[in-house]
Nucleic acid binder design. Structure first.
Lengths: 351, 351
DNA sequence: GTGAAAGCGCTAACAA
DNA sequence: TTGTTAGCGCTTTCAC
């Protein structure tokens, strides 16, 4: 066992060529005769050559620019976490000549997405990390990127049609099943359980549908035990009507628990339950946002499901960096663990 | 805004000295006159100099050796996961001239720990990652390391007396509270809950005591609601007597749930409950081991608490690498999130 | 105390 | 098609 790492120079010597030639085959830049190519290849694998990545990036002296296209973090707490992940990764990868630029669009405004996308393009990025929440607009833009050979990774939502390098997010179906299970586990008697979509943003429709399917399937599978699942959609309601509807929903004496699919809907529901003193109703929802955490602590919310938005973006940047710098292969899709948060493990996630 | 990074050369120029001198102040190796020192310091912070870490490690051409001292992974599935984390990190850091050597001792044999520790020392490591499960022996050994200025990080268990660079593990107290909470949440009526230490290895005593305290405290705080907590210690029992004891324990009609603190104890208890058809008893335990997972899937175990042993060791290596390579400061203690595993989120943790 | 220069492993422009 | 060589930014030895 030779302790020393084999260098290009060693390979060159063994193959009886110069380092330049070896470098050419390593990066298959051509201009190498078949014979020497074969010979070098042979030595390469025989000695198990592994490039020194430090020397590589130092020597090549390339700068990479990654554009991150995400919703404005100042407008929404959830996206602030995504943004934090980008900041973190930015710091980590700055050593490697990788710069990250952020482009914030308005979560509620398609036009702003298109406008920012154009800006992203103008910045001539080497790669893009994006949350393509406006499906149509995203499709157009990323087709353009595709044509220009700009690699992109999506997180949070996906647009499979434009085949991103990778999608980082959660398994929404399984996520709905988990919500159902948590309600089930925390309610010993059988009864009725509802899944609520409140203040759904139109671009979330697909996710919510998948969550709903998971929720319903879970209970269907135990149908014989008297579970029921109801799906309610309170998108863009007038406040008073929402309150009335919730009231009506909860008159059902068999109603045992609610899964709320949107973070905002969650704390509205929580405040409703608290106001009406409905401690008999179990409540499960998504995201570690401030108000949700408060209601979790108070015991109004029983479980939160955490999507780890910060880690999603940090990983996205890492993937792109590894892809460009080291030609690493990236998985098509990386679905995160569904993390369950309760009062007792909350602080261990130190958010 | 100057886009170009300031290099040592730039600093030297601005300060009217040579790169050698700048390097000397950067690493305060002395041999610099007070005046030039001051001048260089000035330029340094004025220009916000940040060293290029790649060039640094490449230039210094140092090799680091980290010794990992852990229980034999072939003897116990839990430690196989710890070992996997080391392998993973090994790969990741090999680029940086960091080698990791593993030293496996027998989990059940103090003498083997001492023997392997001696081997570790003989290997002249630059740093050590260890699970110091034999308190006395570890104390002796790491005092020696301390004297020899070999930094060490502990994971899984701690020996605070020898002040490791960092302890990576879980908050055992909170972990016990979480176990209690999960039992509580999944049992609507009040009743009796027990915490069981089965086949406890003597060196685990402290952890188990902390878990127990967390468990008991949780229920004490709701004492008024009729909860009870019982602590049972079935260390090193004869098999038949254990079965008898469990049988006796479960005759209590108020018994609602069990928290088992050791992985082995957990699947023994699970198989017991299954055999006797006690579906009325909730069961919570630790670690994503094969048999535990099976019982979770079957519904005999309701929740598993995951300690992420793989990530613990991978992080340990990362910390040491960053410490030696980049002089990064490491937290004294890194307590991991307590991850809750159920049937529905199990697969998303793709173990 | 200080500076010059070689070298870390790799890249890429240029000569041959 | 191949070899040579000057960097990349930093460390470290050695001479002054």
């Amino acid at each position: 066992m030779n302790d020393k790492n084999v260098r290009i120079k060693d390979i060159a010597q063994l193959a009886g060529v110069s380092v330049g030639t070896v470098d050419r085959v390593l990066h298959n830049r051509g201009k190498v005769s078949p014979e020497t190519l074969e010979k070098i290849m042979g030595v390469l694998k025989k000695k198990g050559y592994k490039p020194n990545l430090l020397a590589r990036t130092l020597g090549s002296n390339k700068k990479f620019f990654i554009a991150a296209l995400i919703p404005d973090p100042t407008l929404d707490e959830y996206w602030a976490h995504s943004n934090a992940g980008i900041t973190e990764a930015q710091e980590e990868w700055s050593h490697y000549n990788i710069k990250v630029g952020t482009f914030y669009f308005n979560l509620y405004d398609k036009a702003s997405f298109a406008k920012l996308a154009a800006k992203v393009f103008d910045s001539r990025p080497d790669a893009i990390l994006a949350s393509p929440i406006f499906h149509q607009e995203a499709m157009l833009f990323f087709k353009l990127c595709s044509k220009n050979n700009i690699p992109y990774i999506f997180f949070n939502s996906n647009v499979p049609e434009v085949e991103p390098l990778c999608f980082i997010g959660q398994d929404f179906y399984q996520s709905g099943r988990l919500g159902a299970e948590l309600l089930d586990l925390s309610t010993k008697a059988s009864g009725t359980f509802a899944i609520l979509h409140i203040y759904e943003d139109i671009h979330n429709a697909i996710h919510l549908a998948q969550k709903e399917k998971g929720f319903i399937d879970y209970f269907l599978e135990k149908n014989n035990q008297g579970f029921k699942a109801i799906s309610l959609d309170y998108s863009h309601p007038q406040e008073p009507s929402l309150e009335k509807e919730l009231l009506a929903l909860l008159t059902d004496p068999k109603m045992k628990g609610l899964l709320v699919t949107t973070s905002k809907g969650l704390f509205i529901t929580a405040s409703f339950l608290e106001k009406h003193g409905r401690k008999d109703i179990r409540l499960v929802g998504y995201d570690l946002l401030r108000e949700n955490i408060e209601y979790l602590k108070k015991g109004v919310i029983d479980f939160l499901i955490h999507q780890n938005p910060k880690r999603q973006t940090a990983l996205g940047i890492s993937y792109l960096a590894n892809y460009m710098l080291f030609k690493k292969t990236i998985p098509n899709t990386d679905l995160f663990p569904l993390e369950i948060i309760t009062r007792q493990n909350l602080k261990t996630f130190n958010i």
